[in-house]
Amino acid sequence: MARNVEFDESAAIQKAMEIFWKKGYNATSLRDLIDAMQINSSSLYNTIGGKQELFVRCVQHYTDIRAQDWDKRLASKRSPLDVLIEYINEAVNIIINGEDSCMAVKSAFEVATNDERVKQILAADDQRSYQFLYKLIKKSMDKGEISSDEDPALLADYFNSTWTGWYESYILHKDPVKIKRMAEYFIKQLTK
């Protein structure tokens, strides 16, 4: 008779996600994962699968958390421009102060080029990010906070790709002033 698996799978996924986020896929060992999840390797294989399957589930979990955050921000009764500026400033703070920065960006560079499932999850996440930014920018335009001469689709695409460049710049140069100045410039361009 098979033994019942005795662990909280969602809590285990959260713990594994934190390890992958910190170390990356390639540097994370199976031992790192089972220690963090507080399970044995047979429980991992019997319920989730191997390291790759666990990673896919962790990336999905991470992107689901981001989507919930975006939905909450969009539902805010505050000025859409204020929400957007806060989001930009939080992105800057994560880039320059967070040890782990963005798991989606890390995963895109490390794994998505070779794993179609991860690529699809991240592509869907990128589309949700775009929609979040587009809606905030459009709402800001409707309220007269951003000039209606601007193209909300272009601005959303531009920011989506620009902040990934900020992340790369910080990894290479460790210059927080540079990242802050680029964010300030972007905000200034939005609000001219």
Rank of each mutant, 00 (worst) to 15 (best):
G98Q: 07
D126A: 15
E116W: 06
R128P: 03
K138W: 02
M141S: 03
K135I: 10
A124S: 12
M141E: 09
A124Q: 11
C102T: 08
F109G: 12
F132D: 04
K138V: 06
R117W: 02
V105E: 09
S107D: 03
D100G: 00
F132S: 07
K143R: 14
S140W: 01
Y130G: 03
N114M: 12
F132T: 05
Y130C: 05
A123Y: 11
D100C: 10
S101G: 09
I137L: 06
K135W: 00
S129A: 13
G98M: 08
N97I: 01
Q120S: 14
K106Q: 11
N114S: 14
S129M: 13
V105D: 08
G144R: 00
A104E: 03
F109D: 09
G144V: 01
E116T: 12
N114R: 13
C102G: 02
T113K: 15
Q131K: 12
A104T: 06
D142M: 05
D115Q: 02
A104L: 01
N114A: 11
E99W: 01
V118H: 02
S129H: 15
S101D: 13
L133T: 03
D126R: 15
F132C: 03
Q131H: 10
S101Y: 08
K143Y: 04
M103Q: 06
L133K: 06
N97S: 10
K143A: 11
F109L: 13
M141F: 07
Y130E: 01
D125K: 07
D142A: 10
E116R: 13
D115I: 02
K139A: 12
S129F: 15
E110T: 07
